[in-house]
């Protein structure tokens, strides 16, 4: 079961590589923010799966921080796109 969870964690990182292509390729900034939001979600899942893989419950708090703050970043950046940050 540990091996399956590790393989799933690796698969999430590989999905992050696919999204990084879109971060580099996206014609507008909105594409990049979309890819970055999805990348944050995938990294959240990867941290959760790595916590189960390494059997440390301490690592789980990192995923909660990541899940709550990445959306804050997305909302702040979309507000920057809409009206300017200052």
């Amino acid at each position: 079961m540990t091996l399956a969870i590790g393989v799933a964690c690796l698969a999430e990182v590989v999905i992050g590589a696919l999204l990084l292509i879109r971060v580099g390729l996206g014609p507008t900034v909105c594409d990049r923010i979309v890819a970055l939001n999805t990348l944050s979600t995938q990294i959240t899942l990867a941290v959760l799966l790595f916590a189960a893989f390494a059997d440390r419950a301490t690592y789980l708090d990192v995923s909660i921080w990541l899940a709550s703050f990445s959306y804050l970043a997305t909302i702040v950046w979309s507000r920057y796109l809409e009206r300017g940050l200052l």
Binding site: A54, R56, A57, T58, Y59
Partner: peptide, 11 residues
């Protein structure tokens, strides 16, 4: 090695 946190040790 693992993290130097003693709470909730591995199984």
């Amino acid at each position: 090695s693992t993290a130097p946190v003693l709470l909730t040790p591995p199984h």
